[in-house]
């Protein structure tokens, strides 16, 4: 038992964000973020534009200094590892390289700098499907090819954790399929993957978990299954001339009622029951609709600033110890 725990601890890298905050002047890009990334899982990192995804990722690898709080990787800061890219591999910006280099030269320089076996370069070119373009200058690459090269760079040090910022950007259908396969493969080999996106559709097929942020704040951290369950739970949307009265009536019948837009979101009762209750109590219904939200709807709703969706995560420290 002890041995398996020790083994698990060795492979599974733990990344903790503690009260992580970044302010640019008066603008708060990341706002008191507390988060433990689940090891060995593909975590989708979702949020609308400007919600602080990139900034958070940059703080994980010490590119940006937090205003407050810290990121702890296996008990240390990223910059305290002697060979950090063998711990965490990152793709922040796919055009982040000298465009006059070829893919092979680019990877080879990084391999030299980080003391990585040159064979890894060939291997990564193969894995990312850049073999045929390896001797072409990067400036002739399409965005999708640059993404592939960026991913090759991230994987070069064979890191335990891979962090990719919007890797789906510019990818064609084939590329997206390939990327999804790659994520599954990485997770299977025990690596953790953190992949950001502002579209639920891009990651819903691959992520085991989702972290959703908005305006730099953590809005939700849950498993994909939980999120799906939420989307499957349909409800009845009700608008009426006397909202307070019908709410009281519904609550008396053990319904679960939440305010939503100009009306109510009702669970536990079906449309027929609600209609009959309204008639009995002489309430005029303006709308009575059955709603089954998609994952995208759930995501939009969460990022609309509804704080009641926050689900606190189990402390991974306890799980591992």
């Amino acid at each position: 038992m002890l041995i398996t725990i020790i083994l698990q601890k060795r492979v599974m890298q733990l990344i903790k964000l503690v009260n992580l905050t970044k302010k640019y002047g008066s603008k708060t890009a990341v706002d008191h973020l507390d988060l433990v990334l689940t090891p060995g899982a593909v975590t989708g990192f979702l949020g609308p534009n400007g919600s602080g995804k990139s900034t958070t990722m940059k703080m994980i690898i010490s590119l940006v200094r937090p205003t407050l709080g810290e990121v702890v990787v296996d008990g240390k800061a990223y910059r305290d590892f002697p060979e950090p890219i063998k711990r965490i591999g990152t793709l922040i910006d796919p055009s982040a390289l000298d465009k006059n280099l070829t893919a092979k030269q680019h990877l080879s320089i990084i391999a030299t700098a980080a003391n990585i076996n040159p064979q890894q370069v060939e291997e990564m070119l193969r894995v990312t499907g850049l073999e045929n373009a390896q001797n072409k200058k990067v400036k002739s690459y399409s965005l999708g090819m640059k993404q592939r090269l960026g991913i090759a760079t991230a994987l070069l040090g064979n890191p335990d954790t891979v962090i990719l910022d919007e890797p789906f950007n510019g990818m064609d259908v084939d590329g997206i399929k390939w990327l999804r396969g790659l994520f599954k493969q990485l997770a299977k080999s025990g690596k953790s993957v953190l992949v950001s996106s502002h579209l639920m559709s891009e990651i819903q097929a691959v992520a085991d978990r989702v972290v959703i942020i908005g305006q730099g704040k953590l809005l939700a951290h849950m498993t994909m299954d939980e999120l799906k369950r939420r989307s499957l739970s349909s409800f009845i949307y009700v608008e009426a001339n006397n909202l307070e009265k019908i709410k009281r009536v519904l609550l008396e019948k053990q319904a679960i009622v939440q305010h939503r837009k100009a009306g109510l979101e009702v669970r536990n009762l079906d449309a027929k029951e609600i209609g009959e209750l309204a008639l009995e109590n002489q309430i005029v219904l303006h709308e009575l609709t059955k709603v089954t939200p998609s994952l995208e709807d759930v995501f939009t709703e969460i990022t609309d600033g509804k704080a009641d969706y926050i689900s606190k995560e189990v402390n991974m420290d306890e799980t591992l110890n």
Partner: peptide, 18 residues
């Protein structure tokens, strides 16, 4: 400056965060 501005800085500083 080329290593700092062309964007290559992200990769360079990821290798050498100190």
């Amino acid at each position: 400056t080329k290593d700092l501005t062309s964007g290559a800085v992200h990769t360079n500083l990821a290798i050498t965060p100190i």
